[in-house]
Structures are given as structure tokens and as C-alpha cells.
């Protein structure tokens, strides 16, 4: 129950970290909050030869809103540094105002002590299909920036998750920034989940982002599920049923039914796949009702 020996590298700038990643390649692991990595090291399920600690790089810890000094600019994208703590996001006024879905999901992630260390970049890179943040990234149609020495690229959330605990990130890349576009007018969001105990990874959970026109007709919607497959699962067929329609109980029932067929949960020690589908169906009804109500009054 103790980690195997490793070389400890603590860069104090992103440039230094990129050089270290380039040099050590797959022998090294990046250490962010450590709230997923250190447990597996304690159990020796991971034994990296080197750890590159990102905790002394202040330039990766920020929340900013675009707008060239005009904070009210409607086009404002949110930019979040990958080493921003989950606890910071939970309490950040810009997040509460401009990314209410992210704000709403934060308290569901583990416990305050874990969120004090855990980072947004660490959770996104870790790619646990039961985690909240990857689901929120897809629901908000966000992107992540991946940097390596001599280059940077942006990857959309929907392309980032390729398999169980696997992303499009190359070994020599560091996830440096998360970009969230602003919500369109008349957009309502909602997130909910069911866990056995508060703070546990959830059995089922769903995020909804719904946009309506002046008459209340749905023009766009995203429904994204956690613990519903190997990656965060976007239920596009279910979502398509909503477009062009007004809110109604029957419609939501049909959407929830399609969604529970579209997702691909598996049996595990906590719940059967059948039960997870049932939960997803019930939760879909709840988030749709909430998101539509919020969209109309937004």
C-alpha cells in the first residue's frame, strides 16, 4: 500500500513541464490533483518511473472570460486553466454566471476535501466514464487545448474521448486549457445524478442543454450521460426527437425511452445495466422538464 519509487520533477513553468514531458515520454505521469493518480499508485496499479508535478505552475490556474476588456461582451468564451481546482470552479462567480451547468454539477464530484486538490484538467484527462466533468464538457460543446513542445492543438470534447479511460491526448501532450462557448439566448441547462451515497461516483447521471425559440419551440438540444458506456455518451437520436417540438409530457417520455435504448451501460457490482437504463430514463424526464422551464424563462 505504498507507491513504488519514482523520480520527482517539479517544473515551475509550462515551458519547463513541456520539456520534461518530451524528455521522459511514456515513463512519466503527469501529477495534477493526484486524487485519481495517487490512489492507483498507492495500490501499485500504476508505477510511473517519473512524476511531473504540475502543481507549481501558476500559469495553468485561471478562469477568464473573453471580451477584450468588455466583460459584458455577449460573445465571451470562458477559458479555464487545466490546473484550476474543482473547489475554485465551484465557487467562481464567472462560472456561476456563465457556465451554470458546470456550477450545478460541481458539488456532485466527491467531497470538499477531494475538490480542494482535484483539478478540472485532471478529471477530463483521466476520462472516467462515471465522472461528471467530461459529461459537462460535451454538453457545453467545449474544447480542450493540448500542448507539446513546439505545438498546440484544440480537440472538441466530442472527439476527445475515444475509449474507457482513453483520450485523443498523445503521451507528450499536456492538457492546458478548457474553452467553453457562451450559451445561446433562451437556453436552459440541468444536471442530475443518482449515487449510492453523496460523493460516490454516480450510478447514472445526465446533463441537458436546451435552446428554444420565442414561441418555446426547441431549436437545439444536447443530452449527455455518465456511467452509460465506455465514454461520456451523447444521446443524439433522443435529442433529435425534441428539435422542432414544444415541451410536453408525452414528448419527454418518448425521448427518455429512446435515450435509455441509445446508451450502453454495463453490469457492475453496484447496479445492473437494466437498472442503470431505468435510472437514465427517470433522470432524463427530470432534466428535460427543468431545462425547458429554464430555457423559456432565460
Amino acid at each position: 500500500m505504498k507507491p513504488a519509487p519514482f523520480e520527482y520533477i517539479a517544473p515551475t513553468s509550462l515551458a519547463e513541464a513541456l520539456t520534461a514531458v518530451h524528455k521522459h515520454g511514456s515513463d512519466a505521469s503527469l501529477l495534477a490533483g493526484g486524487q485519481s493518480l495517487v490512489p492507483v499508485m498507492n495500490f501499485r496499479l500504476a508505477q510511473p518511473a517519473a512524476l511531473i508535478d504540475l502543481n507549481n505552475i501558476p500559469e495553468l490556474d485561471y478562469v477568464r472570460r473573453e471580451g477584450n476588456g468588455q466583460p459584458e461582451a455577449a460573445s465571451g468564451h470562458l477559458h479555464i486553466g487545466s490546473m484550476t481546482r474543482q473547489r475554485t470552479l465551484e465557487r467562481h462567480p464567472l462560472i456561476a454566471q456563465y457556465a451554470p451547468l458546470l456550477h450545478e454539477a460541481m458539488p456532485y464530484i466527491a467531497h470538499p476535501q477531494i475538490r480542494n486538490r482535484g483539478t478540472i484538467g485532471g478529471s477530463l484527462a483521466h476520462a472516467d466514464p462515471a465522472a461528471e466533468l467530461p459529461v459537462i464538457l460535451l454538453a457545453l460543446d467545449g474544447r480542450v487545448q493540448l500542448q507539446k513542445s513546439g505545438g498546440a492543438r484544440w480537440v472538441h470534447g466530442r472527439d476527445f474521448y475515444t475509449d474507457l479511460f482513453t483520450t485523443a491526448r498523445a503521451e507528450d501532450e499536456i492538457l492546458t486549457e478548457i474553452e467553453l462557448p457562451p450559451l445561446p439566448p433562451r437556453t436552459g441547462v440541468a444536471f442530475t445524478e443518482i449515487a449510492r451515497r453523496h460523493g460516490d461516483y454516480a450510478l447514472s447521471g445526465v446533463a441537458a442543454v436546451v435552446t428554444v425559440d420565442e414561441r418555446g419551440i426547441c431549436t437545439a438540444v444536447r443530452l449527455v450521460y455518465l456511467n452509460a458506456g465506455d465514454t461520456p455518451i451523447s444521446a443524439t437520436q433522443a435529442a433529435a426527437l425534441l428539435v422542432g417540438q414544444a415541451a410536453s409530457e408525452e414528448l419527454f417520455t418518448a425521448v427518455a425511452h429512446t435515450a435509455q435504448q441509445e446508451i450502453a451501460p454495463t453490469d457492475d457490482i453496484h447496479a445492473t445495466a437494466k437498472y442503470k437504463r431505468h435510472l437514465a430514463q427517470v433522470l432524463t424526464m427530470r432534466v428535460l422538464q427543468q431545462a425547458f422551464t429554464r430555457a423559456v424563462s432565460a
Binding site: P39, N42, Q113
Partner: peptide, 27 residues
Amino acid sequence: CEHGVCGACTVLFDGQPVRSCLMFAVQ
């Protein structure tokens, strides 16, 4: 537990509660 679940190891790090089993002392 040494994997962050039980909370028995909680200490304050710069005034904030954290799991001391999920940090390295060098940090």
C-alpha cells in the same frame, strides 16, 4: 484506506482540508 475514501487522514494544507494520503510530502 489510503485511497481517499475514509477521510481519517484529513489535514489542513494552507488552511484547506485535504487528504494527506493522496499527497506526497515533497509537495
